[in-house]
Design a protein around this nucleic acid. Structure first.
Lengths: 349, 349
DNA sequence: CTGAAAGCGCTTACAG
DNA sequence: CTGAAAGCGCTTACAG
């Protein structure tokens, strides 16, 4: 490490503005503005003069002034609970890409699992004059009204788009993967390859978890299981300790399949089977959910459900653009994903 | 899904501004401004009147106008190559938290691995009038000048902070985890617990990879290995196919330890050993890097290196705030992480 | 403690 | 095709 302490020479040169360009190129600021925005008519000769002056001075318009006259800065706020979660991280990735392609910039806020700061985060984003709000995950639509009233209020000012969450409110648009159906398909797969007593392992109780549980229950009923045979287990504490929990359950009432609410949990389940000396998929079948990278990193590739995040995010953009143009757009839209067969389930015969 | 097509009733009520509040509370806009900003003197009585009017009208100042007069909007741009990468995702998470706590908002840009869009992304962020730029990952500081010249140019306008990358340039501040030392420690651990022929598995050639390689080589030399015995293997293609690659190598020249450049790669290595029927850690020791959640999700908890991302990010904030206040701050700072022992290495005797 | 006024740097009818 | 001018909604010396 060379110089450990360095004072900066602050760059105090006044930033060049539209008046400088106007003066240098001998035209009015209105014309400069037209050139910058490719709006209205400008003669080629004038345009060139202006462009030259802009180039020479490295001029770029002041974003605030621009935002002020245009009353938009083409910023979209992204709200999530935890950007470290693989599902959310991937959404952020695709959203940011699509937004950039459409000329928007993404402003990110992570509210934390408890949504305690949701209210503050929403008003922060609004005070930054975002043009719209995109919320990742069904968490934002769950629980009592208190949880999402901040969103409803925000929707008063800008369009709000919910990814994988449902909220029937004015100016809120929802794009949802049919997780109920997805979990139905996975359950069917497991039952039709011979599992008799599957377990459903669920995490934090979000609306999307509820959908998955419903899909599991529905499918089990259709296969003739009575309610007491339909086992839904909420995950206690963290992933690190779930092995013990599964062990206790297994010793009391053995199971032969574990349907998990996401890939992370499925990894934990797989770890349990390895430690317990249970063969996968021969003795126990395991499924994940989300089709994330995680499902491909374990010793066995995990059977999972691809909920098409790239599609989800592109739809969000479509919704956003439609609403901005005051075109109509479905307030709710539901799409399906697809099963990705892996090595933790058996072949259908 | 109820209503599939819903037209919005556009909210066309003019937004309330400072003049409205001024009129309603019977004071000048200057006073309203003072109340809003808690600046200057305002009598309690006046303050109350103003506050009431603000409350009644749900007034919040226009961000552009504010930005224009203050010439800052308290936005910090975050640049990364891929927000889905666990390391980067975690940095984003902590940065965003710290920034929010300090009154800044995070604006996110993912440039993609090839940095092809770096130039465009940087000017996009600058045109949004960010107050500073934070770059995640050594990728931004690597390779030829072409890779990072956009950053150098950006540093002309706003402070640039590099997380885990080194660039000796004006107005660029670097905070770096000592990965060379980290990899040295892991190599030492593996050698001193009996491994004789370790392998170093590296991914994309970033500066940080180089540091790790250097640490590995240095430690090997110190333990008396000649250069031809020091094996550094670049990962071919994706993680999915790395099993085959390791198999080929193992058959030709067996190894008894795999030191990986990150946790993800370590998971892949672990998968290889399981498929090849090699016992970990008895026959083969494995180490990861980053101390990410991944290291705890596999059948065996992976020995890894905690590079203290929360600390890294908090330092970034400190740097940013110091520079903004024109205080001096070390242009480069280096810190150490720590080994997290897991089940993929043996106990030191 | 308060107000009148300048200034921030653009965009966009409007008139030519 | 071009320019003069109003307007966007704040902040902040400056004067009182």
């Amino acid at each position: 490490m060379p110089d450990v302490l360095t004072e900066q020479s602050p760059d105090d040169s006044r930033k060049v503005n539209i008046y400088d360009i106007s003066r240098e190129s001998g035209v009015s600021i209105a014309t400069v503005s037209r050139v910058m925005n490719n709006s209205g008519y400008v003669s080629d000769k004038t345009r060139k003069k202006v462009l030259d002056a802009i180039e020479r001075n490295g001029y770029s318009p002041n974003a605030f002034a621009r935002g002020m006259s245009r009353s938009t800065m083409s910023i979209v706020g992204i709200l999530c609970s935890d950007s470290r979660d693989p599902y959310q991280a991937e959404c952020i990735y695709w959203l940011q890409k699509d937004l950039a392609a459409a000329g928007y910039t993404a402003m990110l806020c992570c509210t934390g699992e408890d949504l305690k700061t949701l209210e503050g985060d929403v008003s922060l984003l609004l005070s930054r004059s975002v043009d719209a709000l995109i919320c990742i995950g069904s968490g934002f639509a769950g629980g009592s009204e208190k949880n999402w009233e901040a969103l409803v209020r925000a929707a008063d000012k800008v369009p709000v788009i919910l990814l994988n969450g449902e909220l029937e409110q004015k100016n809120i648009y929802c794009i949802v993967c049919d997780d109920e159906k997805g979990m139905e398909e996975l359950t069917t797969l497991v039952l039709e390859t011979g599992s008799k007593s599957p377990l459903f392992l669920t995490g934090a109780p979000s609306p999307s978890s509820q959908d998955k549980i419903r899909g599991f229950q529905k499918c089990m009923k259709e296969h003739g299981y009575s309610s007491e045979k339909i086992r839904v287990i909420p995950l206690e504490t963290t992933l690190d300790t779930m092995g013990d929990q599964l062990k206790r359950i297994y010793e009391k009432h053995p199971f032969d399949a574990i349907l998990c609410c996401d890939d992370q949990t499925a990894l934990g389940a797989l770890k349990f089977t390895e430690q317990a000396g249970l063969k996968v998929p021969e003795q126990i079948q395991i499924t994940g959910y989300n089709g994330s990278l995680l499902s491909r990193l374990s010793s066995l590739q995990i059977t999972t459900y691809d909920n098409r995040l790239p599609y989800l995010c592109s739809q969000a953009l479509l919704a956003l653009q439609a609403v901005m143009k005051r075109q109509s757009f479905p307030r709710q839209s539901l799409y399906t994903g697809q099963v990705i067969p892996g090595q933790t389930t058996r072949q259908a015969s």
